[in-house]
Amino acid sequence: MNSKNIRALNYLYYFFIVAKQGSISKSAEQLAVTQGAISKQIVNLEQILGVQLFKRESRGVSLTQEGRILYESISPCIDVIFSAFNRIQNQEDSNVIKIICTEAVAHYWLAPITYQFSEDFPNINIHITSSNAISAEVIEAYDFGILYGNGQWDALNTFLLFQEKISPICHIDYPVEDIKTINDLMKHKLIQLDPYQWRWITWQEWMKINHSQYHPQKDTLVYNQVTLALAACTNKQGIALGWEFMVKDLVKNNILKKISQFETLTGMNDYLVNSKYKKLSSHAQIFRDWLIASIK
């Protein structure tokens, strides 16, 4: 590692805090330093990398595309480091089960079902961390993770939770009678997920799986999170891609509907995983067995 990269590491924590806070002034308060000191660290990092990491705005700062890539890359590493600090300092209570998963899995699937687990086992606490930067490498810092992929991770035990099943979805009152083919579908307003910030399937990949080519529309609505795309659907703004585990209850409650003739299995799945090299506590084993039984 050259000296320039070593210097860059010195500035990364300041970058991480500012990115998380979205404000230099709030970051200065958290770190008990001056705003000028933080700004200098950020400028030094930008000069080393040769890119602008933040857009300076009247009410704070926001990440550039390059800044977003850096933040999503280092966040899991910093989470692992501080989790290790906590374990060493506090000898964490084995009654606490720590799980990491994506924001969508946490919001639409895991959090709702763990309410029931808490009722069944009130003496066991579930702590959920949501991060779209999740990877196999960060699982060691947690009891469990929920990972998307093909299930082939050498250092992890895996259990299939659900297959990736995707359908175009829209508001229950949105007119779809004219949609017979994918070409018909593309004539409607499609709600897109930003491919620079969304790591999973977008309309482009979905069309390819269905042997079609995606043609972007001039007035396409673009969101960086699926929660926002589904909110746009509930407001009758168009048609989005919906993952079965996310939209199941919305469809059941007649808020959204699937355009079911285009339901697609991608061949990828979501798995409950845990490290092969870290012994599960008795409470973690109870949670694992309960979760597996609940989805059968």
Rank of each mutant, 00 (worst) to 15 (best):
W109T: 07
N235Y: 12
Y196G: 01
N90F: 13
N132I: 03
K189W: 01
E46P: 04
I78G: 02
E103T: 14
D249T: 14
N274F: 11
F162D: 02
L228G: 06
F245D: 01
I97S: 05
D79R: 08
L160N: 14
G67F: 03
S25V: 08
I99P: 01
I239S: 02
I191M: 06
W203C: 00
S294M: 11
R59A: 05
L45N: 05
C101H: 02
S260P: 01
H171V: 08
V251E: 12
L110Q: 05
G67M: 01
K165H: 11
V273T: 02
L70M: 05
Q47A: 12
Y148H: 14
K276T: 10
N5S: 14
I128F: 00
I17W: 09
D270K: 00
E177P: 03
A136I: 02
Q41N: 15
I48L: 14
V33E: 03
D270I: 01
S212E: 15
M268E: 10
W206N: 05
S275L: 05
L221A: 12
A19L: 00
K257L: 03
L250Q: 00
N5C: 11
Q192P: 04
N90S: 11
T266Y: 08
G36A: 13
K180D: 15
W200P: 00
A133H: 02
T158G: 02
F159M: 07
V226P: 01
I99H: 03
S167I: 02
G60N: 12
F82E: 09
P76Y: 09
I146M: 04
V222T: 10
Q163W: 07
L70R: 03
T114E: 04
A104G: 10
N269F: 11
R199M: 09
I255S: 04
K278W: 03
L280T: 04
S23P: 08
I100P: 01
T266Q: 06
I201Y: 12
R68H: 13
Q41Y: 10
D194T: 11
I6M: 10
D173K: 14
Q197F: 13
I201V: 11
Q89P: 00
A136S: 12
L190C: 00
L31V: 09
P76L: 11
Q192T: 06
S39G: 06
F162Q: 03
Y13G: 04
Y148W: 13
H211V: 12
N5E: 15
A231W: 02
P168C: 07
F162N: 02
K236E: 08
Q41F: 04
D194W: 10
M207C: 15
T202A: 09
Y71R: 07
Q52Y: 13
P195E: 11
Q225F: 12
L193I: 03
I81L: 14
N95T: 14
D154A: 13
L63A: 02
G151E: 09
I166C: 04
D93H: 10
T34G: 13
I113S: 08
K187Y: 11
K258A: 10
I99F: 01
